[in-house]
Design a protein around this nucleic acid. Structure first.
Lengths: 159, 159
DNA sequence: TATTGTTATACTCTATAACTATA
DNA sequence: TATAGTTATAGAGTATAACAATA
């Protein structure tokens, strides 16, 4: 009798949404990191730089909550960007504990180049999907990640 | 005049599918790892164990390709599972370089418990979506991760 | 010569605790 | 006392290189 071996893509694991998200994430991160390498950026640095360019004047605490990273991780990322002249820390005069992270002109320029690179990487990853399917995927992911009717951007704190 | 500050959830970053996938991944991994902790498993160990239980008789090379991990990482995961008596390595008699990774009875039993835990975690993560939306999300992710008409489970090799 | 599994190493990411300065 | 930022550390994940056994 011939082999009746189940292909791994038909395994139970391959139907778990979180497993699929991990695969998409790891493939996507790999490609994005490759796409950003020529600018000396990684996904995490790019994310912080992007938000520093967003006009939201995020504090480091805001960045930590939004990116679901620990505040201590944000420190290292912001410091690296600051040392490269891409962002500045601006102390909030109303609450001198808090520091807004703002892009410099150089940071904004680099972000623009980086955005082009990540958009291209995203398009490559999603090349199999039609435009409607991409919009649908984006909407579904947004709904899971930013549930409607939730005030705060991210409820998670330190522990 | 009042603040006209853009919320971070309306930033350009929040529309990038890869960024959203990363957020879903990191939240999902965190919850799945918590759900698996009482069984002394992590997501990566669970993935390998799941495939060892799948009936596919995967070689370590198969696992590496399917999980998009380097073969050297598979070695460590399989060794840990093997030392705990959850899987065995079975040398392929036709190609003595290759070793199939198979679950023991104990491994299959543990996997069953773990599957319940990860399913619950997945449901929590996706609680905001209707059943139809979950099916739609699953189908879209599957299409990206396992493009139809591709023979191999994963084309990526070592470098 | 190429492939499977293995060992080793370095770097990044993640999680946690403790400290400081402000509030 | 609580919060924003910081420092430090350990463990997990990721990326490479080199090697032995086998094909």
């Amino acid at each position: 009798m011939p082999d009746e071996v189940v292909p791994l893509s038909e395994s139970a694991l391959a139907d778990e949404i979180e497993f699929l998200a991990i695969k998409l994430f790891s493939a996507g991160t790999r490609r994005a990191n490759e796409a950003l390498r020529h600018l000396d950026l990684r996904v995490r640095l790019y994310s912080v730089l992007s938000l520093a360019c967003s006009g939201s004047r995020p504090s480091q605490r805001d960045l930590a909550e939004f990116l679901a990273l620990d505040p201590s991780q944000i420190v290292a990322l912001v410091t690296e960007l600051e040392e490269r002249g891409l962002v500045t820390r601006e102390t909030d005069l109303n609450d001198r504990r808090s520091k807004a992270v703002l892009a410099t002109d150089a940071g904004a320029a680099l972000f623009h180049s980086a955005k082009v690179a990540t958009s291209r990487a995203e398009a490559e990853t999603l090349t199999i999907l039609t435009n409607e399917e991409r919009a649908s995927l984006r909407a579904l992911l947004r709904k899971v990640v930013f549930p409607p009717g939730e005030q705060s951007d991210a409820p998670r704190g330190r522990g």
